[in-house]
C-alpha cells in the first residue's frame, strides 16, 4: 500500500564488475510490477536490495516519501516470499503465519483473528495445525504468501515464487497471487525469468539486462513494441535483419533487398525484427522472397523452419497441415505492418 521509488541504484560485489548500474524505477501504489530478465541480469539483486538483505553500493530506495536506503531489514516493514518458500520447519502453519505478528507485539486475540482470516483468504483453514514438511509445494507456497501478507506489509517482494511448482500449478498459483494482490491492494514486486508468467499478471514489466533496465512498460507495449534488440529477443522475436541503409522514409536496405515497414523511427534503425509466426507464406510470384529449408522442427501448433534466404537465415513458422520438406523451397513475404525497426 505504498509507492516505491528506486533512484540510481548501483551495486558492486567486492572488487568485481558492477551488477547494477544506475537503476531507477518508480512503482505506483497498488501495482504489481515484474522484474524480468535472464539469470545474472540483476533482478534478484535488486529485490534483495529493496528488502534490505543486501546493501547497495549507492543509490536511494524510497517507500512513499520515506527514505529506507539505510534502514535495517527488520525495520523496513516489507515482506518477502522466497523461491524455496523458507517456511519455519519447527512451527505449524498457524505459527508460521503468526510469526510476524508476534514480533509486532500484537495482542494474542488480534493475532488469532488476523491469522485465521488470512488462512481463510488463502484457503489454508484445514491445514492450520500441520507442519510445513507435511504440505505439498502449492500449499507451502500459500503459507509463504499468507505469512508475508498477514503483517500488512508496505511492499510484497516475490522472488521467483513459482519456479518450484509444476506447470499446471504454476498457472493457478499466479492467478491466486494476482487475486490476493488486487484484493489487498498491496504494491508488489515480482521477480521472474519467465516472460509468459510475468506478462500474465503484471501491471508493468521492467526488463533487465546486465544490471540495467532495457524497457519499463505495460506487458502489451513490451510485447508489441520492444524497445531494444535484447528485449525483442527475450520475448520471442527470432529474426533480426541488419539494416545497411535507408532507401526512403519507410523503406530500408537489407542485404541487396529493399524492405518496407509501417512504423517510422525517430533515429536511424539498426535492425528490423519480426516474429517467426508473422512472416507470411505465399505462392511463388513477383515481390515474393524465396529460400531453402535447412532445418525443420515441430512445435505442436506449427512447424518452425530455418530458411536460407536472400535476407540471411530466417526462422519462419508454417502450418502443420502442409509441411515443407528439408531442402525444398519456401516462398514468403515480410508484412510491413509486422516488421519493427529497432534503434538499438
Amino acid at each position: 500500500m505504498a509507492r516505491l521509488t528506486l533512484e540510481n541504484l548501483a551495486m558492486t560485489y567486492g572488487h568485481g564488475d558492477p551488477v547494477l548500474h544506475d537503476l531507477s524505477l518508480a512503482v505506483a501504489d497498488g501495482q504489481l510490477v515484474s522484474l524480468l530478465g535472464p539469470s545474472g541480469s540483476g533482478k534478484t539483486t535488486t529485490l534483495r536490495i529493496i528488502a534490505g538483505l543486501l546493501q547497495q553500493t549507492s543509490g536511494t530506495i524510497k517507500v512513499d516519501d520515506d527514505d529506507i536506503s539505510r534502514v535495517p531489514v527488520y525495520k523496513r516493514g516489507l515482506s518477502m516470499v522466497f523461491q524455496s518458500y523458507a517456511l519455519f520447519p519447527h512451527l505449524t502453519v498457524f505459527a508460521n503465519v503468526a510469526y510476524g505478528l508476534k514480533r509486532q507485539r500484537i495482542s494474542k486475540a488480534e493475532t488469532t483473528q488476523r491469522v485465521t482470516a488470512m488462512l481463510a483468504t488463502t484457503g489454508l483453514n484445514d491445514l492450520a495445525e500441520r507442519y510445513p514438511q507435511e504440505l505439498s509445494g502449492g500449499q507451502q507456497q500459500r503459507v509463504a504468501l499468507a505469512r508475508a501478507l498477514v503483517v500488512d506489509p508496505r511492499l510484497l517482494l516475490l522472488d521467483e515464487p513459482l519456479s518450484n511448482l509444476d506447470a499446471k500449478l504454476r498457472v493457478s498459483m499466479r492467478e491466486e497471487i494476482r487475486r490476493l494482490q488486487l484484493q489487498l491492494h498491496t504494491t508488489t514486486i515480482f521477480v521472474t525469468h519467465d516472460q509468459e508468467e510475468c506478462f500474465a499478471i503484471s501491471d508493468k514489466v521492467a526488463v533487465l539486462n546486465q544490471g540495467k533496465i532495457e524497457q519499463y512498460a505495460a506487458p502489451e507495449e513490451i510485447y508489441h513494441h520492444p524497445a531494444t534488440e535484447f528485449v525483442a529477443r527475450f520475448i520471442g522475436f527470432e529474426n533480426f535483419l541488419p539494416v545497411n541503409g535507408t532507401v526512403a522514409d519507410h523503406a530500408y536496405r537489407v542485404g541487396d533487398q529493399t524492405v518496407r515497414v509501417n512504423v517510422a523511427t525517430d533515429g536511424a534503425a539498426k535492425v528490423l525484427t519480426i516474429r517467426p509466426n508473422q512472416i507470411r507464406l505465399v505462392p511463388e510470384g513477383p515481390e515474393v522472397l524465396s529460400g531453402q529449408v535447412t532445418i525443420r522442427t515441430y512445435l505442436g501448433s506449427a512447424y518452425r523452419y530455418t530458411v536460407d534466404s536472400p535476407l540471411g537465415a530466417l526462422q519462419i513458422d508454417g502450418p502443420t497441415e502442409a509441411p515443407v520438406a528439408v531442402g525444398a523451397p519456401l516462398h514468403f513475404t515480410l508484412p510491413a505492418e509486422h516488421l519493427l525497426p529497432l534503434e538499438a
Partner: peptide, 11 residues
Amino acid sequence: HIEEAAWTLGT
C-alpha cells in the same frame, strides 16, 4: 532463507 524470512518479518 528461513532466517532472512524472519528478518523481513521484523525480527
